[in-house]
């Protein structure tokens, strides 16, 4: 995941603390895993080392970290380049579902049962997304449609995997 570039994007509106960056990220992607504080500060440190952000204010003391970061012009250029570049399509993805299915088949487990339960889990997630109330954020429906489209594609693959496993079982009988 391009966390570094997203952090640059979150700083593009103006200087901010690490805490604001984390909050901004979680508001942009409410359906994704929240960004961990540790990851925010590690990323900001790396971006500062590479000259893409700079520290513009630092309040020392016993309280929470008050370091304020801002984009540099190099950081702004890097962000613009990243936003312009298309993402290479993933290939041969071996995500958890595929790994479990292969493991279930290889170990003689109940692959069809696993696929049926996975189907139900995907369908429940689509329903949750459909039932999430609309808000004013214009990016929310885009994010939701993206996730639903990917779940739908997974479901079509789960269907054909179920049929293939049933056919194989029939042929071996």
């Amino acid at each position: 995941m391009a966390t570094a570039e997203l952090v640059l994007g979150l700083l593009s509106a103006g200087p901010a603390h690490g805490y604001d960056v984390k909050r901004g990220h979680d508001a942009w992607f409410p359906d994704s895993r929240p960004l961990a504080f540790g990851q925010v500060y590690t990323t900001l440190g790396r971006l500062e080392r590479d000259g893409l952000v700079e520290v513009v204010d630092k309040t020392s003391g016993g309280g929470p970290d008050r370091t304020v970061y801002a984009l540099t012009s190099k950081g702004r250029d890097h962000l613009a380049d990243w936003l312009n570049d298309p993402v290479p399509p993933a290939w041969g993805s071996a995500d958890e579902v595929l790994r479990k299915l292969v493991a279930a088949i290889r170990t003689g487990g109940d692959a069809a049962g696993f696929l049926a339960r996975q189907r139900a889990s995907h369908l429940r997630r689509i329903r949750e997304l459909r039932e999430t109330p609309a808000d004013d954020d214009p990016t929310s429906p885009l994010v939701r449609e993206y996730i639903v489209a990917h779940l739908d594609a997974d479901l079509r693959w789960l269907d054909s995997a179920l049929d293939r496993i049933s056919e194989q079982r029939g042929a071996h009988r």
Binding site: R119, H122, R124, R156
Partner: peptide, 15 residues
């Protein structure tokens, strides 16, 4: 349609 199916309480799949 998976979106239609997702709104059900139960899914029955035929083959």
């Amino acid at each position: 349609d998976n979106v239609v199916a997702s709104s059900a309480d139960r899914e029955i799949r035929l083959r």
